[in-house]
Design a protein around this nucleic acid. Structure first.
Lengths: 230, 230
DNA sequence: AATAGTTTTTAGATTTGCCTAAAAATAAAT
DNA sequence: ATTTATTTTTAGGCAAATCTAAAAACTATT
């Protein structure tokens, strides 16, 4: 089956929304895509005839299994291109989202397989999001929100919750990126800000708002030799 | 100014046609783009309002200077992506044309500049065609048609006249590619086929039709030390 | 359970890019 | 220089994807 750029964008957006919500509504999707509810209804009818979703008027909708496969294919392309842009072309990870949004609609399947091989089959994109393999399978490392990390625990930053350039600019300024190992040394209840330390650098504090957008994988210190593992 | 994929394809096609012909006609362009004359007329009117071409009804048309700049930008993108696909992703040079046809419409200018740098500023694509630089300038090595190469002259294959996969399959079979050094050892007037030799391999003959699609840069043997130069 | 408020869908237009069929302009041929 | 043939343009329509405005269906509230 063949899809237009527009159809692919709808399918991808539905996929992301139903990760959070399960049932997706017309207005949600319209907001996500910066379009109008009426346009969404039109496209839903089309995607239903293509068997991409389960949809009854007024009842909300979710992707069918077939729809999920298509969505994962697009996500795969998006994240592989992001990886390429950052790790080969030396873009900053806060600059690549919109370019990947165009590249993800290039159709050739063999192109993506060769790109994947060229990049040595990466498992995570530059934002820490897992890259689906050719069958749609991907890592589901349990990552937790930084606000839920316990005091004095070490953890490795594994994902950021959004791709807004404002956020990524702030992270760059604070020298926080995917893979950064940090430790929470204080939590302030007044404003829920937390103080963290990275390596041997001076500690500094980050806002609750920022901490909420950061996801980490806790690291456990070995009881026997003190070495750090995941 | 912003252009749709369709507008870009028209501009590119006009560019290629006017390399050969100077004045381009409606029917030529319709044939080139596998579309109908009426559609071409529609688009010509649009491109004229965008100042991309000089066009008076019934009189034929050519690109304006602005139009040429746009065309060279698209050609640049196309050829850089082809280079990338062949030299980094290990595609065969006969497989990349249609993929590059999609990639050439990705808009980000900084992407192309970073890609160019990543590829170390190549001057020719895998088919031997010169890659325009960011200002639209490109190599204009005088290459001649293989049918015009004189007997017993050595030459290096520098371009192929078409990208049809039938042609490229044949070239691959005969082990002829960009950079191949060959020598014409006989010409047959009966069917205009020519016999060539590559390195120390046994000579073989190629048809007039094939020779016509091959362009070469003659190599000159030094009178003093016998070394080969361009 | 009736009303008020919100969400979703339908109805009808618009734009882009394409088409067919017919008319107009140009080119060729007697 | 007419007639014939070819090329190009115009006229009118179609499909995709969007929109606004209005109707219909759901939800919440008294």
């Amino acid at each position: 089956m063949n899809f237009s750029t527009s159809e692919e964008n709808y399918i991808k957006a539905i996929y992301h929304l139903q990760q959070a919500n399960n049932l997706v509504t017309t207005n949600e999707l319209a907001t996500e895509l910066n379009t109008k509810a009426a346009s969404v209804t039109d496209m839903l009818k089309k995607l239903k005839t293509k068997k991409m979703l389960h949809y009854e008027p007024y009842q909300g909708f979710t992707l069918s299994n077939e729809g999920k496969k298509v969505a994962l294919g697009i996500v795969r392309k998006h994240r592989l291109w992001e990886y390429f842009l950052v790790n080969k072309l030396e873009f900053g990870w806060d600059e690549v989202h919109s370019i990947a949004e165009e590249l993800e609609h290039i159709h050739s399947p063999v192109l993506i397989e060769k790109l994947d091989a060229y990049l040595s089959y990466p498992k995570f994109d530059p934002h820490g999001d897992p890259i689906p393999d050719i069958n749609g399978k991907m890592e589901t490392t349990k990552q937790i929100n930084l606000t839920d990390l316990e005091l004095n625990a070490k953890a490795e930053v594994s994902a950021v919750g959004s791709q807004s350039s404002e956020l990524l600019e702030l992270l760059r300024h604070k020298n926080i990126g995917i893979g950064t190992v940090l430790e929470v040394i204080r939590k302030f209840t007044f404003d829920n800000s937390i103080e963290i330390v990275i390596k041997k650098n001076p500690p500094f504090s980050i806002s609750h708002q920022l901490a909420q957008t950061l996801f980490v994988k806790p690291l456990y210190v070995s009881a026997t030799d003190g070495s750090i593992t995941k």
